[in-house]
C-alpha cells in the first residue's frame, strides 16, 4: 500500500527516511510556534515548501489536490471571524472580528503548511522506508512491528473488502448511513476473521524464515552525516525566516 508515494528520481527521494522525518518534524514545530501576525514568515515557509517540492519533482497540482484533507479544519476556521470578539472591521458589508480573522488565518496557515510538509514526506518516502526511518530514530520495536503488520494487513483487508463489497453491491445494497451500520458490521466481522487467518499464515511464514520482530534493514545503511546536514537546511532556513521576521517586526 503506497497511497501517496510518488515514485520519482530526485535528490529528496534519495535521502534516508530518518533525516526526512526529522526535517519535517522540526519544520512543522517552527511553523507552529511562529506568531500568527508574522505574515512574512509564513510567506517564507511557503516558498521553502515550493522549493522542496521543486527539488522532489512533486507537481503543485498533486500537492494542492491532496491538501484538501484538512478542509474540515479550514471550515472550522471560516466561522471564527463572525463569532470572534473584540475589535471589528467591515469588509464587503460584513462585520468581521479582527481577532477572529487572525484566529482563522492561524489555523489555515499552520494547518496547510503542516499538511504540505507531511505530503512532501509521504510523496518522497515509501511506507516501508518510513518504518525503517522510525526504527533508526529509536522508535520502539513494538510500534514498528505493529506498523509492519498493519501495512501487510491493509493489503489483505483491501483485497478481501473489495471482493465482499462487489458481492454486496451486486445484491443492490450499499449501506452508508448510521442506521445501516448493523448490516455493514456483520460483513466487517466476517472480513476481520478472514483477514486474521490469512495474516496468521503470513506471520508463520515469516517466522519460518527467521523473523524475530524486526525487519532486516536490507540494502540501506544509516544516513551519513552529509544527509543530516543537507536535510537540516529546511528547518534551519525556516527558523532563520522566523527569527528574521520577528526582528523586522
Amino acid at each position: 500500500m503506497e497511497p501517496l508515494y510518488l515514485a520519482r528520481e530526485s535528490r529528496v527521494h534519495r535521502l534516508s527516511p530518518e533525516v526526512k522525518i526529522a526535517a519535517v518534524l522540526l519544520f512543522t514545530i517552527v511553523v507552529v510556534v511562529t506568531p500568527r501576525e508574522d505574515l512574512t514568515a509564513f510567506a517564507g515557509y511557503t516558498l521553502l515548501i515550493a522549493l522542496v517540492a521543486g527539488l522532489a519533482r512533486v507537481p503543485a497540482g498533486w500537492l494542492l489536490k491532496r491538501a484538501t484533507i484538512e478542509l474540515p479544519f479550514v471550515l472550522l476556521a471560516v466561522v471564527l471571524p463572525f463569532t470572534g470578539h473584540g475589535e471589528r472591521v467591515d469588509w464587503l458589508g460584513l462585520s468581521l472580528s479582527v481577532d477572529g480573522l487572525y484566529g482563522a488565518w492561524n489555523i489555515f496557515a499552520k494547518g496547510t503548511l503542516g499538511v504540505l510538509a507531511s505530503l512532501l514526506l509521504a510523496a518522497t518516502t515509501s511506507m516501508r522506508d518510513l518504518i525503517l526511518g522510525l526504527d533508526r530514530l529509536r522508535c520502539p520495536t513494538v510500534i514498528t512491528q505493529i506498523m509492519t503488520f498493519m501495512l501487510r494487513y491493509i493489503d489483505v483487508l483491501i483485497d478481501d473488502a473489495r471482493r465482499m463489497r462487489i458481492a454486496r453491491l451486486s445484491r443492490g445494497y450499499d449501506p452508508r448511513f448510521l442506521w445501516q451500520v448493523k448490516a455493514f458490521a456483520v460483513g466487517v466481522g466476517a472480513l476481520f476473521l478472514r483477514s486474521y487467518e490469512r495474516g496468521e499464515r503470513v506471520y508463520l511464514a515469516m517466522l519460518s524464515r527467521g523473523y524475530s520482530g524486526r525487519m532486516p534493514s536490507g540494502s540501506g545503511s544509516k544516513a551519513p552525516a552529509a544527509e543530516w546536514v543537507v536535510s537540516s537546511a529546511l528547518p534551519v532556513a525556516a527558523a532563520g525566516i522566523a527569527v528574521a521576521a520577528a526582528v523586522l517586526a
Partner: peptide
C-alpha cells in the same frame, strides 16, 4: 497493545496521509 495499535494508526496517518498535524 491496544493503545499502541491506535497510536500506530495515528502516527501513520500523520506521516503518510497528512491527517492530523505532526505537532
Amino acid at each position: 497493545v491496544g493503545a499502541l495499535c491506535v497510536s500506530t494508526v495515528l502516527i501513520v496517518q500523520a506521516l503518510v496521509f497528512a491527517d492530523g498535524g505532526l505537532t
